[in-house]
Computed example of a mutant assay.
Amino acid sequence: MIQFRNEHMTVFQSALFQTTSTVIQTKDMVLIVDPNWLPGEIERIVNYVNEIKGDRPLYLLFTHGDFDHIIGYKAFPGAITIGSKGLSEHPQKERKLSLIRNFDAEHYIQRGYPVQFPDLDVMVSEDAQQLKVGETALTFYLAPGHTEDGLFTVVEPMGVLIAGDYLSDFELPFIYHSAQAYKQTLHTAQQIMERHSVVLLVPGHGQTATNREEMQRRLDLASRHLEKLIQAVMAKDENAIAALGREHAFPSSFTEECHRENVRIIEKEFAG
């Protein structure tokens, strides 16, 4: 489905995990972000891009290397690929591909393109690194914490912040890499909103934010939850830890496992 649309941007949303795929068009380029999940959903994005592309170059941005965010990579042959240095050097590429293959096999899914881990044409290795295409500027910020290879991207002059798996309207922090890095990335997000004229925020899961008050609410929500969980883990307050686990939307075995992983990583980093 199309979740959000304006003159320059269309945000597609998968039926699975409310995962977003964003297409931004300027007079200089067409940018696709994290095309996913199901073949029919990706085919719709492909058809839309073919309709609007014209003679403009096509860029394909990956916010991080989780398998749901790279699953549509080869549906766009010839696209100029962008991602972080951490994505390029991902230590578990084959495991990510096996997750895609297992998902497809379990659901009898056939894809009309090969399943591969992205090869990058543009590799981001530092904060504020830019890619300029005509009058369009992409400014990148490293965003580790959820994963080690996360990336924020600001698209100007449209004022769009592509946040990956941060700043969802409903999804609380899922930490697969580092709680300390996650805290720093939330600080980076605050700095981005202070430095750039961000008017639209697209998370990897959930709704597009169209005003700064909502963006700040999401940032504060994630920061408060993470800080409370760190304090509860350090105090070994099992009741508080359990209560924070119940704050996750769509409670399931998946969110329970993610909460346990959050606690495990915080114990390792903050409680010795």
Results as ranks from 00 to 15, higher is better:
residue 6 N to A: 05
residue 10 T to I: 12
residue 12 F to M: 03
residue 14 S to K: 09
residue 16 L to I: 13
residue 18 Q to C: 14
residue 19 T to C: 10
residue 21 S to D: 01
residue 22 T to K: 00
residue 22 T to S: 01
residue 25 Q to E: 14
residue 30 V to F: 13
residue 30 V to S: 10
residue 31 L to S: 01
residue 31 L to R: 01
residue 32 I to Q: 06
residue 33 V to L: 02
residue 35 P to M: 00
residue 35 P to C: 03
residue 36 N to A: 12
residue 42 I to E: 06
residue 43 E to S: 11
residue 45 I to W: 03
residue 46 V to R: 09
residue 47 N to S: 14
residue 48 Y to K: 08
residue 48 Y to P: 04
residue 50 N to M: 10
residue 52 I to V: 08
residue 53 K to P: 02
residue 61 L to G: 04
residue 65 G to N: 01
residue 68 D to K: 11
residue 69 H to M: 10
residue 70 I to Q: 02
residue 74 K to E: 14
residue 76 F to S: 05
residue 76 F to C: 03
residue 77 P to G: 11
residue 77 P to T: 02
residue 80 I to P: 08
residue 81 T to V: 07
residue 83 G to I: 00
residue 84 S to Y: 04
residue 87 L to Y: 10
residue 88 S to V: 14
residue 93 K to A: 00
residue 97 L to M: 15
residue 99 L to T: 11
residue 103 F to Y: 10
residue 103 F to S: 08
residue 105 A to R: 10
residue 106 E to A: 15
residue 106 E to T: 13
residue 106 E to M: 12
residue 109 I to M: 12
residue 111 R to N: 06
residue 112 G to A: 15
residue 114 P to Y: 04
residue 115 V to T: 15
residue 116 Q to H: 06
residue 116 Q to I: 01
residue 117 F to L: 04
residue 120 L to I: 03
residue 121 D to A: 13
residue 128 A to F: 14
residue 136 T to K: 11
residue 137 A to Q: 14
residue 138 L to A: 10
residue 140 F to I: 05
residue 142 L to Y: 09
residue 143 A to H: 05
residue 143 A to V: 05
residue 147 T to I: 12
residue 150 G to E: 01
residue 151 L to K: 01
residue 159 G to M: 05
residue 160 V to G: 02
residue 161 L to K: 03
residue 163 A to H: 06
residue 167 L to C: 05
residue 168 S to N: 11
residue 169 D to T: 13
residue 171 E to K: 12
residue 172 L to E: 04
residue 175 I to W: 11
residue 182 Y to M: 14
residue 183 K to R: 11
residue 184 Q to H: 04
residue 190 Q to H: 14
residue 191 Q to P: 01
residue 191 Q to V: 07
residue 193 M to H: 04
residue 197 S to P: 09
residue 199 V to K: 15
residue 204 G to M: 03
residue 211 N to H: 13
residue 211 N to G: 06
residue 212 R to N: 13
residue 215 M to Y: 05
residue 215 M to P: 08
residue 215 M to D: 05
residue 216 Q to V: 05
residue 219 L to M: 08
residue 227 E to G: 12
residue 230 I to F: 06
residue 235 A to C: 05
residue 242 A to P: 03
residue 244 L to S: 05
residue 255 T to Y: 00
residue 255 T to F: 00
residue 256 E to D: 15
residue 258 C to A: 15
residue 259 H to Y: 12
residue 264 R to W: 13
residue 265 I to G: 00
residue 265 I to A: 00
residue 266 I to N: 01
residue 269 E to A: 03
residue 270 F to T: 04
